[in-house]
Amino acid sequence: MADIVPAEVRSRMMAGIGGKNTKPELILRKGLHAAGFRFRIHVADLPGKPDIVLPRFRAVIFAHGCFWHGHDCHLFKIPSTRTEFWQAKIDRNREVDARNRSQLTDAGWRQAVVWECALKGRTKLAHDEVIDSCAQWLQSDTQALEIRGVGE
């Protein structure tokens, strides 16, 4: 199916999608702050500039968009135009994610990934449930956490 907007407009639209302060990230930050957690955001010294950094717990939280990180859920679908370009871009994002995870692990950081499908779409969880899961994880000794949508 052909795109309904010209290529220049589509390019401008996609370039305008920011990687910081996304809605899922803001939901997590607001909930964690209300639960009493204090954190830093987008720390440039750490691999991948984690969305939320909790130094006291030696933990980081990434709020991953399902499209941009190629998640295997209902929110991800490779576009039907320029398929090779998008597949290469998403594959590269996955490689960078894996490298960042490895570097963070080597540096002694615990890591959580909260997928966009856990916070929106037909498989979303209650926001309080996601925040509670993060809070429990932070106060545990568990190294990693991944929160996905229901049934994903």
Score class of each variant (00 low, 15 high):
G108Q: 05
A98T: 13
I147T: 00
R94Q: 15
T123P: 05
I41M: 10
E25K: 05
K30V: 00
A112Q: 05
G121H: 04
I27Q: 10
L26C: 06
F37I: 06
E95V: 10
F76V: 13
R148H: 12
P55I: 08
C117K: 02
T22E: 08
V53W: 07
T105H: 15
I27K: 11
T83H: 13
R94N: 14
K89D: 03
S140V: 03
H127Y: 14
L26G: 11
S80F: 03
G16R: 07
I131Y: 05
R82H: 14
V96I: 15
D132F: 00
Q136Y: 10
W109F: 09
N93F: 03
A144G: 11
F76Y: 15
P24E: 04
D45V: 09
A135V: 13
A88L: 13
R29Y: 03
A63N: 10
G16C: 01
W109L: 05
Q136G: 14
L75Q: 02
G36M: 02
I61A: 01
D91R: 15
A126G: 08
P55K: 04
L28D: 03
D97S: 06
S102W: 13
D97K: 10
L32E: 04
A35E: 12
L138A: 01
A98S: 11
D72F: 10
F39C: 05
Q103E: 15
N21G: 02
I147H: 03
